[in-house]
């Protein structure tokens, strides 16, 4: 129970900072929308291709936005010795990891909802089978947030963080991209029936579980001497 309370302290702190600075909503979200628009510009002449590849494009946009969100989550701790403050707070490091990952996940989920609406609008897609899409998106989001937070702290405080993080994180989250895209394709009836999405959702859930556990373990040692 203590863990949950400590977790929420960290999450609330990050969300409060976001509510005041509006970096995710004001910068990361417009970035994601621009990525969607760029895909549309690139593929528009080919009528009919956009709705078919929409799930992949959507998740690429989410992934790029997630990179920025994770980068932002650790940029918060850089200034004014905030990281030392966090380290000396006496909070459990596992709770810190879960808290930061939860904050990232919440922001990402909001981004996904808005970008999803964008996809429906721009790419002429009919949303359906929400009972498949929502769990798939949730599992993918938790996986992205957990892996992102783990690699975020791995690259945190380094001078080359901005360029290093994508290189470290993108290969790791490639399975999330694959699973989420296939689940969405099945769910939207683009490739197979909605029921075929479940094995992918299962895989996304296990990925999220593995990276949450790894991050929970590794966060302490990574933070302590950084």
């Amino acid at each position: 129970m203590n863990l949950l309370r400590e977790l929420w302290v960290v999450t609330a702190k990050d969300l409060r900072i976001e509510a005041r600075s509006r970096v995710t909503i004001g910068q990361v979200l417009p970035f994601g929308v621009i990525v969607l628009l760029l895909f549309a510009f690139a593929l528009d002449p080919d009528r009919g291709i956009l709705p078919r590849v929409a799930p992949g494009l959507f998740w690429v946009a989410v992934l790029l936005a997630a990179l920025l969100a994770v980068s932002r989550a650790f940029a918060l701790e850089e200034a004014n010795g905030a990281r030392d403050g966090l380290r000396l707070s006496g909070l459990d490091t596992g709770a810190m990891f879960l808290g930061k990952a939860l904050a990232v996940a919440i922001q990402l989920f909001v981004l996904e909802v808005i970008l999803g609406a964008g996809v429906v609008l721009f790419y002429d897609l009919t949303p359906r089978a929400a009972e498949v899409l929502v769990p798939a998106a949730l599992a993918a989001t938790v996986g992205l947030a957990a892996a992102g937070t783990l690699y975020g702290v791995l690259a945190a405080g380094l001078r080359v963080r901005e360029t290093l993080l994508p290189l470290l994180l993108l290969p790791v989250v490639a399975p999330v991209m694959l699973g989420a895209t296939r689940a969405f394709e099945a769910g939207l009836g683009l490739n197979g029936a909605p029921g075929e999405a479940w094995p992918w959702v299962e895989m996304l859930g296990l990925f999220a579980l593995i990276y949450t556990t790894l991050g929970f373990l590794a966060f302490g040692p990574l933070l302590e001497e950084a």
Binding site: M203, I210, T213, L214
Partner: peptide, 16 residues
């Protein structure tokens, strides 16, 4: 972790 990986192997991964 071990349980998750085990589930990954035994479970539905071969289906997709």
């Amino acid at each position: 972790c071990v349980a998750a990986v085990g589930a990954l192997l035994v479970g539905g991964l071969s289906r997709n």
